[in-house]
Design a protein around this nucleic acid. Structure first.
Lengths: 204, 204
DNA sequence: TCAATTCTTTGTCGATCAACAAATAATGTG
DNA sequence: CACATTATTTGTTGATCGACAAAGAATTGA
């Protein structure tokens, strides 16, 4: 079997599609935009990725498993809750303001407003965002059960607070707020968590 | 002068357009969607509002001077910085989760991702968002100069922090996070400001 | 009454949208 | 070699996009 070999690098083309979707969102990118950016004719895109929606989905998964995975990594790899959230927020700012890349989080930016036809795309991205909030919640519950937090701390409220802030960082970055400015917001942003920690030493 | 009188209520039609744009964004709404929602033929829309973009702009202004003005009002009408921000955030949650209305903030949701042709719309809404951050900054500087804040508090960082959180609330609301949940995030959200206040009594 | 003015209806414009069909080209396997 | 298989090229499809032109309808002032 095995017919004519593919002439373009599928991963490379997918990465280009991801960047375009990242910058302009699903509906902000037309097939002809993709043709230009990926450098291959539309029929080839359909052959390799099935449809625009499937291509977008795959691009989102590429993002989520790559740069977008910073949150998962921070939550899993840091041992204290404070270290985890400090790193998570810091990595978020760095990613959202990376030079020569689209600003903001792809999953936040790429699907807020949508045509009737494409509500499924919007809903799916909403689910991704809810999953992120859930993972924050999980990590905070863990910390609470491990005795890191005050007994009256509310892990769910803290989780939704940080989810909101994280999403907001993305909007700010897309609006061009500079990296240093966003980094300076992390000190106030971490104070709710610090207030919820069981006291060791009083800092600030 | 004065020819045939208009048969439809311009303000009413504009409000319907605003709600549709609020829910689905500028590009998420087509002229034929507007025709259906406003109940008038497209040529009438052009006669009364000039273009889709001008209609959108007017709808945004209607929003900004109405429901969207909660921030301006809170900042202007409350005398202490804490009261102002408490009310601002609370009003934001209430507006963003109002039943029988689109969820989230129109100015945050209606233009994050956009086609090349409509970057002007995106840019303009970005400017609105930056203006909001600037007004938070102004109010915090006022408070600082009035001696409400600790000398080492950073009004600019606090302003951008609250701007980010506010924008994030909008994303959360649009994703269906319930009102009570969002209200419970306000307690952590206010702790950075409380930490920056010159001490009077220590409340948790 | 009639002319000027404004609104409404109807139909349509060229452009662009996502998606594919058909034909041609290049590979491996038997 | 021939044939099955897969890629690429080219062109087109019907739908929908935003925007308007032209003509009829309703009103006011002269």
């Amino acid at each position: 079997m095995a017919g004519r070999p593919r002439e373009f690098d599928r991963d490379e083309a997918l990465a280009k599609a991801r960047d375009l979707f990242w910058e302009r969102g699903y509906e902000g990118v037309s097939m002809s935009d993709l043709v230009d950016a990926m450098g291959i004719a539309s029929a080839r895109i359909y052959a390799a990725f099935e449809s625009k929606e499937a291509l977008f989905q795959e691009a989102v998964m590429l993002y989520a498993s790559g740069e977008g995975g910073f949150a998962t990594r921070a939550l899993a790899e840091e041992s204290t809750i404070l270290d985890a959230f400090e790193r998570l927020l810091r990595d978020a700012v760095l990613l959202y303001t990376r030079p020569n890349h689209p600003h903001g989080c792809m999953i936040v930016m790429a699907a807020t407003n949508y045509t009737i036809n494409n509500q499924a795309v919007r809903t799916r991205l909403g689910r991704y965002r809810r999953d992120r909030a859930a993972s924050l919640h999980e990590r905070l519950k863990m910390a609470s059960e491990a005795g890191e937090l005050k007994p009256d701390a509310d892990p769910r409220a803290l989780a939704e607070f940080y989810a909101a802030f994280l999403h907001g960082l993305s909007v700010q970055a897309a609006d061009g707020v500079p990296r240093d400015m966003l980094l300076s917001t992390l000190s106030p942003a971490l104070s709710p968590l610090k207030n919820a920690l069981l006291a060791k030493a009083d800092d600030l």
